[in-house]
Design a protein around this nucleic acid. Structure first.
Lengths: 344, 344
DNA sequence: TATATTTACGCAATCGGTTGCGCTGGACGT
DNA sequence: ACGTCCAGCGCAACCGATTGCGTAAATATA
């Protein structure tokens, strides 16, 4: 059982077939200058001998790996893990590996991770920015060296790269419109860092909806969080609901904070949605579990991952592509109990 | 800006310092046979010139990478993503990369992934088995080639490897005991595949608790699922509660199914915990969101990941370790509303 | 003083593929 | 019959670091 059989290399195949290693190398990847029957013979013998290509050697020669790096904030969040799931599926289909690194939403970590990934000679990069990040020079190393970079969800306009996003403005507009249609008069907003366009655009959509309905924009009803976790959501809701003139609806930029809003309301006897309507964002699993169920905006997370991976792979195929496109995916307003005031 | 400056190699350092590349290589890793001042000089120049080690080349030479492979079922599950988060943290501290591959709980995928990871020349492997898996030969390739394999959570006894687990038997016992203490007389169990020891042991703990309290073991109150998702949990609960003599408690082997049990109860006017107590497993985020909040068993997911990674790294350091240890982490019974019948 | 050790470093092969360039023989054209 | 062209394959130099073995000088031991 314990047999350390030496690995079969293209040299073994070559000498057995009395051809040169280069021929074997080319035959294995259907190079045009190799004869049809030679290709067959090489592949047949390779199969018989159990040859397995050494990607390391190839990577060394090409100075580039078939590994895709993924930079995200936290793996253990519903949206992110679904995103990665999509990336991994697509990448593994194409024979690529996926290596993960989390910034924990800290700018310095993001920089360190970028360096580490670059040193690992990744062949492509998929990024969802840290909450803190405001400068983007740590990505120029990749671009200068023709390593494709694709941003997902938390993107930036300051870099000329592919992006895979949703229309956050439209989604924010849609969500807020829905609240207005349900008869809400004072709608508060729990937003995220305005340096992250996703949050900024959701907020802009929210503001636009108010404007279109000639509703007053009350700055005291807008709070932007740093991390948008449960604690922050709870505190913000408490702040809103203890105002002299509290809101009758909250549009939160993520489900985590929205769920906290519901919990605050429940703890304080505020009826949902009659006294307070709550709208979330992301369609996390919890949105279906919380009682009342949470209205939210659905994100095609897995698809975003798949598409991002496809973009990276496309750039690897055709090195000549210089155009950088922005792919915008559809969102869906999911109306549940937390905002449904009018029965239909 | 667009400067394709050639990479600095140890040869550049060597020639500038008028020494041989081997000296530079050794100096950079504090080899004993290199003089103190030489080491300093090399490191200083390396820093100045912006030298970055080419891991690919090293990997080729050593025929082994500094990458840890991780095989899991699905990334986008709370427990798994937390596990990976821990692994990634620990690995990146040690300068290792982490590459992920998901089996989607399908045996054939697991085999294919194992092959792919082996072909990627990973330096270590962390595995949480697919639900389906019953044969384990696809891991022997790693063991035969001295690539450390560490199993986490969903482990097997058929392979002589390190394991990082919790005491599922004790946890099942503890959880069931709690239900009994709360006055439950007929306790049902939603279990997972009995080929996965985690589920088997939880079930054994459940059975043992009943025995110790001289309670009848009713086979009709035990169902083992294939995937333990929401639908399955809901169906199983429905099955239980429509029995002629329905249970007054359910101990589910995971939170997902437990949450479904609660939802079924709510939909059908079954009061929790008075008419039906529900106990979950994992302490997923939803367990705190569901109303009533779900009692459950807490899993130290992130720590399990960290420890698993540490085990892999340890084996990489000392190739001489042959002993394979099993590390068992503590679990914690978390009592919440869904089982709390007696006020204290 | 001659020999044994230690210290500090160099030589050169090696890991397995990749690829620019060059060579060859036969088909084809005129 | 002779030059042209191209399909088909080989040569050999890489890619960058690692490492067993060898050696010269410095120091220690006999």
């Amino acid at each position: 059982m314990k047999q350390k059989k030496r690995e079969i290399t293209i040299y073994d195949i070559a000498s057995e077939l009395k051809v040169s290693p280069s021929t074997v190398s080319r035959a294995l990847k259907d190079h045009y200058s190799i004869g049809k029957e030679m290709i067959e013979a090489v592949k047949k013998l390779a199969r018989e001998r159990g040859y397995r290509p050494n990607h390391i050697a190839a990577s060394l020669r090409r100075n580039k790996t078939n590994t895709i790096g993924v930079m995200i904030s936290w793996i253990n969040r519903p949206f992110i893990s679904s995103l990665i799931s999509g990336i991994e599926d697509e990448a593994s289909n194409a024979g690529c590996n996926v290596i993960i690194s989390q910034s924990h939403d800290i700018y310095e970590h993001e920089i360190a991770n970028a360096r580490a990934l670059y040193n690992s000679r990744i062949g492509g990069l998929i990024v969802s920015l840290a909450m803190e990040t405001r400068k983007y020079n740590h990505f120029s190393t990749f671009l200068d060296n023709d390593i494709p970079v694709v941003f997902v969800d938390r993107v930036t306009d300051e870099l000329n790269c592919d992006k895979v996003v949703i229309d956050n403005f439209a989604a924010g507009l849609m969500a807020t419109n829905h609240l207005i249609e349900q008869g809400c008069k004072r709608i508060a907003h729990i937003g995220g860092s305005q340096h992250r366009s996703v949050y900024q655009q959701r907020e802009q959509g929210y503001l636009e909806a108010l404007r279109r309905h000639n509703m007053e924009i009350d700055e005291s009803l807008i709070l932007n969080g740093d991390v948008l976790n449960s604690e922050e959501g709870y505190r913000m809701t408490e702040h809103f609901m203890t105002l002299p003139n509290p809101p009758d609806a909250i549009f939160s930029a993520n489900d985590t904070a929205a769920v906290s809003a519901i919990q605050y309301a429940k703890h304080n006897g505020i009826r949902i949605p009659q006294k307070l309507a709550v709208m979330g964002f992301n369609n996390d699993p919890v949105s279906l579990i919380i009682d009342p169920t949470l209205s939210t905006v659905a994100h095609p997370a897995v698809d975003m991952g798949k598409i991002a991976a496809r973009q990276v792979l496309k750039h690897r195929e055709h090195k000549d592509i210089i155009t950088s496109e922005t792919i915008t995916l559809k969102t869906e307003l999911i109306v549940r109990e937390s905002t449904l005031r009018k029965k239909r």
